[in-house]
Design a protein around this nucleic acid. Structure first.
Length: 677
DNA sequence: ATGTTTAATCTTTTT
DNA sequence: GATTAAACAT
C-alpha cells in the first residue's frame, strides 16, 4: 500500500481525520448525531483509493438506498467519477439479493426467484396455519410472522427454532415456520429475512466465501447500531483475516430493535475485534447548543450506553418551545400557521426547511389538512403511498408472474382481477390440482387436462390467460423497453380496460389508470437511469428493495415543500425548523412500548427527533384527541419533562396572535383583490 | 359469478 | 374511522 494523499484529510477535524485515516484493521467510529458521519465515510473511501486500494475492492453497506446514493454522490466530488462508480455501495438487502442471483441454486431455489412482500407473507402464513389446523383464534397471522421473522434474523432454521420452543405459541410458530418455508420454496419466493439468512448461508461455502473475500477487501458499514445477528454473521463471513472492517454508528440512535437489531453489535465491537481503532465524534455541525443541551439531557436518562457529549460552534440559538392545543385540529392549525408565519417573515426559510415529525403514520392526517387548507406545499413520506396502491400492486403481480411462473401468490392476486370468470371455484380446483400434481398454478392453467375440469367459459378464459403470459414471457426474454412491453401485456390481458370494470366510478377508474401510467413511466425512468437494456427481473428486484422514502420521492416529487414524516424515517436527515408533534402519553412513548418495557428505545427515538433540528425546535400536543375514533383526553408526554426548564418556553409566542391577525388581514385583502378581478 | 351490505379488527415504527 | 373480511343478495 502506498502513502495516502493527506490533503484529502485536511478539511476534517482531528477525530474525523483519525477515523478516515485509519486505513487497515478494525475501526469503530462512534458518531453522534450530526457529527459529519457521511463526510468521514466518504473521505475515508477517497483516502483508501489514494492509498492505492482499487475501488472495486471497497464495499459500503448502508441501511437505505438513499444513503447509498448520497454517499456515491459525495464520493464523486472527491475522487474521479469513474472510480466512484466502481465502489460497491448498497443496502445489506440489495447486496444479498445480488449474491443470491448467482449463488442460490445450491440452496434449493432457482435464480429467477421473486420477492414476497408483506401481503404475500401473510397469505402464506395463513395457508400454513390452515394446513396445520391452527385457527386464527389461537393467534393471528401477524403474531406468527413476527416470531418467524425474529428467528430468521437470528439465523435459526425451523428445526432449531422447534428445539428451542418451550411454550405452546412458540411450538406452534415453529410448525408454521417450517410449513411457511416449504411454501415459499415451492413458489420460488424469498422474503426479506431470507435475503439475509440465505445470503449468509451462501457464504458458508468456502469457495463462495473466498470469491467474495477476494473481491471485497475493505468493508464499511453505516448505521451499525441497527444491524441484527444475521447481518453481523454476514459481515463476519465476508471479512477476511486482515479484518479491514470499519463500522460507523451511534448507539444512542438505535431504534430498530423491533426488527431484530442488536445494539450489542456496536457496544461489543471492541471485544469482538480486539485491537480495533475506536474514534468518538462529538463535535456537531448541525444544531444550536440549546438544541444539543436538550438532546444531551434527554439521552442521559438512558444507561447502558457510550457516554457522549455533543457540542457545536453553531451558537446558542433560540429556546425550544412547547405548545399545547385543545384538539388535534387546533394543534395542526397552530403548526401550519407557525410555518406560514416563519416562512413569511424569514426569507432564508424555504418550505423544505420545515419538518413535522410524529410517532406513527396515522397522525399525519390533521397536518395534511391544515397545510392543504393554507396552500402550503407538503410532502408526505411513507404511509399509504403510491406503490402500495392496489392497481400498482396488481400490475407488479402480473409482472412477477412472468419472471417467476411458480409465483402462485401473484397469480392468485391477479387471476380474477379484473373478473374473468375465474373466481372461487376455479381457485379451489387450481389449488387441489396443484397439490395433487405438484405443478405451479400457471402451468395448470396451460394444461388442457386441467381446463376440462372448468366450465366452458372459464376454460377458454384460462387458456387465454395462460397463453397471454406465455407470449409475454417470450417478449420479455430480451431486455429493454420494459415500460412499453408492460403496457402491451397489461392491455392485452385486459387489465388496463378492466380497471373501468373494477372501479365503477368513472373518476376513480380514470385516476387508477393515470396511476398505472405513472407507474409505467417510473419504469421507463428506471431504465433510462440504468442506461441501456434492463431485464424485467432487474426492475422487480429494485422494486422490491425500494423503501418508503424512495417511493414517495418518485411520486409527489421534489419541489420546495414541508416534510411530513415519522421519526423513524427522519433518521439521518436534518431540517432548520422541526415540529415534534403529538407529544402525548401513550402516543410518544407509544402504549405498546410501555407495555413491553421498551422505554429505552422509545427515548432514543425521541432523541433522534430532537437532534433533527438545526435552528428551531417546537413540541406540540393536544389536550383531547381522537384515538380509534373516540375522543380521548390526553396527558403530556413524560419525555418533555426531561428537557431542562431553562431551555424551553411554554405556550404560543407572545407576538404570534398579533402577527396572525396581520396575516389574516393580508389574506382577506388578497381574497378581495382576486374577487375584484 | 358478481355486486352490495354488514361486521370486525385494528394502528407503532420498515428493509 | 377506515380498511378489509365475511355474509348476503342479485
Amino acid at each position: 500500500m502506498t502513502e495516502g494523499d493527506k490533503t484529502i484529510l485536511a478539511g476534517l477535524n482531528p477525530e474525523q481525520a483519525r477515523a478516515a485515516g485509519a486505513v487497515s484493521g478494525p475501526v469503530l467510529i462512534l458518531a453522534g448525531a450530526g457529527t459529519g458521519k457521511t463526510r468521514v465515510v466518504t473521505h475515508r473511501i477517497a483516502y483508501l483509493v489514494s492509498c492505492g486500494v482499487a475501488p472495486e475492492h471497497i464495499l459500503g453497506m448502508t441501511f437505505t438506498n438513499k444513503a447509498a446514493r448520497e454517499m456515491r454522490e459525495r464520493l464523486a466530488a472527491l475522487i474521479p467519477e469513474a472510480a466512484a462508480e466502481k465502489v460497491t455501495l448498497g443496502t445489506f438487502h440489495s447486496f444479498c439479493i445480488r449474491l443470491l442471483r448467482s449463488e442460490i441454486r445450491k440452496l434449493g431455489y432457482l435464480p429467477n426467484f421473486t420477492v414476497a412482500d408483506e401481503s404475500d407473507q401473510e397469505g402464506l402464513v395463513r395457508q400454513a396455519m390452515a394446513q396445520l389446523g391452527i385457527s386464527k383464534e389461537f393467534a393471528p397471522a401477524s403474531a406468527f410472522m413476527n416470531i418467524i421473522s425474529g428467528w430468521k434474523n437470528r439465523l435459526l432454521t425451523p428445526e432449531e427454532a422447534a428445539s428451542e420452543a418451550n411454550n405452546p405459541m412458540w411450538m406452534a410458530s415453529a410448525r408454521v415456520y417450517r410449513e411457511y418455508q416449504t411454501l415459499l420454496q415451492l413458489q420460488n419466493l424469498i422474503d426479506y429475512d431470507d435475503m439475509l439468512m440465505l445470503g449468509c448461508r451462501a457464504l458458508e461455502d468456502e469457495t463462495v466465501r473466498d470469491k467474495y473475500r477476494d473481491r471485497y477487501r475493505y468493508l464499511l458499514v453505516d448505521e451499525y447500531q441497527d444491524t441484527n445477528e444475521a447481518q453481523f454473521a454476514l459481515l463476519s463471513r465476508l471479512v477476511g483475516p486482515e479484518r479491514n472492517l470499519c463500522v460507523v454508528g451511534d448507539d444512542d440512535q438505535s431504534i430498530y430493535s423491533w426488527r431484530g437489531a442488536k445494539v450489542e453489535n456496536i457496544l461489543n465491537f471492541p471485544e469482538q475485534f480486539p485491537g480495533a481503532t475506536v474514534v468518538k465524534l462529538e463535535q456537531n455541525y448541525r444544531s444550536t447548543n440549546t438544541i444539543l443541551r436538550a438532546a444531551n439531557a434527554v439521552i442521559a436518562n438512558n444507561s447502558l450506553r457510550r457516554e457522549k457529549n455533543l457540542w457545536s460552534q453553531c451558537g446558542e440559538g433560540e429556546k425550544l418551545r412547547f405548545v399545547r392545543s385543545d384538539s388535534g385540529e387546533a394543534e395542526a392549525a397552530f403548526v401550519a400557521d407557525m410555518i406560514a408565519q416563519r416562512h413569511q417573515e424569514d426569507d432564508s426559510l424555504h418550505y423544505g426547511d420545515f419538518a413535522i415529525l410524529y410517532r406513527s403514520n396515522h397522525l399525519s392526517r390533521p397536518f395534511e389538512e391544515a397545510l392543504r387548507g393554507r396552500d402550503i406545499p407538503y410532502r408526505l413520506v411513507g404511509g399509504q403511498e403510491f406503490f402500495k396502491r392496489k392497481e400498482i400492486r396488481d400490475a407488479v403481480a402480473y409482472l412477477r408472474l412472468l419472471v417467476n411462473p411458480q409465483d402462485d401468490q401473484s397469480l392468485l392476486r391477479v387471476l380474477n382481477t379484473p373478473p374473468r370468470g375465474l373466481a372461487e371455484k376455479a381457485v379451489g380446483l387450481l389449488k387441489s390440482y396443484r397439490d395433487r400434481e405438484h405443478v405451479p398454478m400457471l402451468r395448470a392453467l396451460g394444461r388442457k387436462e386441467f381446463r376440462t375440469m372448468l366450465g366452458g367459459a372459464a376454460a377458454s378464459s384460462a387458456e387465454f390467460f395462460s397463453s397471454c403470459c406465455q407470449e409475454a414471457q417470450q417478449t420479455f426474454s430480451a431486455p429493454g423497453n420494459l415500460a412499453g412491453k408492460s403496457r402491451d401485456f397489461l392491455t392485452r390481458i385486459g387489465y388496463f380496460d378492466g380497471l373501468q370494470r373494477i372501479y365503477k366510478d368513472m373518476e376513480d377508474s380514470r385516476k387508477r389508470q393515470d396511476n398505472l401510467g405513472e407507474f409505467l413511466s417510473s419504469m421507463a425512468e428506471f431504465e433510462a437511469r440504468r442506461g441501456g437494456a434492463v431485464t424485467l427481473e432487474e426492475y422487480l428486484e429494485s422494486y422490491a428493495l425500494l423503501e418508503e422514502t424512495d417511493r414517495t420521492d418518485e411520486e409527489a416529487g421534489k419541489g420546495d415543500a414541508v416534510v411530513l414524516t415519522t421519526v423513524h424515517s427522519a433518521k439521518g436527515l436534518e431540517y432548520k425548523v422541526v415540529f415534534s408533534v403529538a407529544m402525548e402519553k401513550s402516543i410518544f412513548p407509544s402504549e405498546r412500548a410501555c407495555e413491553e418495557g421498551n422505554l429505552d428505545e422509545e427515548l432514543r427515538l425521541f432523541y433522534v427527533a430532537v437532534t433533527r433540528a438545526k435552528k428551531e425546535l417546537y413540541f406540540t400536543a393536544a389536550g383531547r384527541r381522537f384515538v380509534r375514533g373516540k375522543l380521548k383526553t390526553q396527558t403530556i408526554s413524560p419525555f418533555l419533562e426531561m428537557i431542562p426548564e431553562a431551555l424551553i418556553e411554554h405556550g404560543v409566542p407572545e407576538d404570534f396572535m398579533r402577527k396572525m391577525d396581520q396575516g389574516e388581514m393580508l389574506e382577506a385583502l388578497r381574497r378581495m383583490m382576486s374577487a375584484l378581478k
